[in-house]
């Protein structure tokens, strides 16, 4: 199988994840994700770009909860990309991640159907950001209107800022300098973000351990998110 050599990637240690949902909250604040309320969210219209898949193992009282944060896996061969008729989702050559261009999206929702990870969410309405949440809107991120698709971007605004800062200072981006919101807030440091093309980076080191695996790897999507499987 052809291995894609990309740059940015993520390692999530499932042994460390305790399902606290801090990453989901941070992601929502960073990326101007509206809250849709109980009824909408339970009908499958929550807008979270990431979710914590919780599974139970065993029978009560000998029971254990497993948590797995899942967001867009930034596939190297992304199934969502070729099916879009208007190139609204396509591959960024610089960062080697999947971009979603809101202004170009016409809302066919085909990308979401073809995503094996159900990572995409759709703006069913013009969601509101009620006061005081409108004061918290991130100026670096577009606020999306109704009828467009969206998904995790690996906080591309932070990647670009990190790269530009480094460029202005005449150096390369250092390992750990760029952090998406989820990795930044993770209290157990379960989420690590970094550069896979650098074999010395933390993500490369972690991904080379025996615990590393990717979601639905057999589909050939070449995900850019590596999970360290739970041994506990």
């Amino acid at each position: 199988m052809e291995e894609s050599h990309g740059k940015w990637g993520m390692v999530i240690d499932l042994d460390r994840c305790n399902g606290c949902q801090a990453c989901v909250t941070a992601c929502s604040l960073e990326n101007n994700i509206p809250a849709t309320g109980y009824d909408n969210a339970s009908y499958g219209r929550g807008m979270h770009w990431m979710r914590i898949i919780r599974t139970w193992e065993g029978e009560y009282p000998d029971i254990k909860a497993n948590f797995q944060p899942v967001m867009c896996q930034q596939c190297g061969r992304a199934p969502c990309e070729p099916v879009c008729p208007v190139f609204a989702t396509q591959h960024s050559q610089a960062e080697e991640i999947n971009l979603q261009v809101y202004n170009r999206c016409i809302g066919t929702r085909y990308c979401a159907n073809n995503c094996p990870y159900t990572a995409r969410v759709f703006n069913w309405f013009d969601w509101e950001h009620p006061e005081p949440m409108n004061y918290y809107l991130n100026p670096d991120v577009t606020v999306r209107g109704r009828g467009v698709m969206e998904k995790c971007t690996f906080c591309v605004q932070r990647i670009r800022r990190g790269e530009e800062t480094a460029k202005a200072q005449g150096r390369g981006v250092q390992d750990g300098e760029v952090q998406p919101a989820c990795a930044q807030v993770c209290p157990t440091n379960a989420i690590v973000f970094g550069d896979f093309s650098d074999p010395e980076s933390r993500v490369s080191q972690l991904a080379s351990t025996q615990r590393s695996a990717r979601l639905e790897e057999s589909l050939g999507t070449q995900p850019r998110v590596v999970y360290l499987q739970s041994l506990l």
Binding site: R77, A78, P79, P82, C84, T89, H91
Partner: peptide, 14 residues
């Protein structure tokens, strides 16, 4: 085979 060359866009590793 012509128009994609005007504005090359890569999708899905194709």
């Amino acid at each position: 085979f012509g128009t994609p060359l005007l504005y090359p866009m890569r999708v899905g590793g194709q």
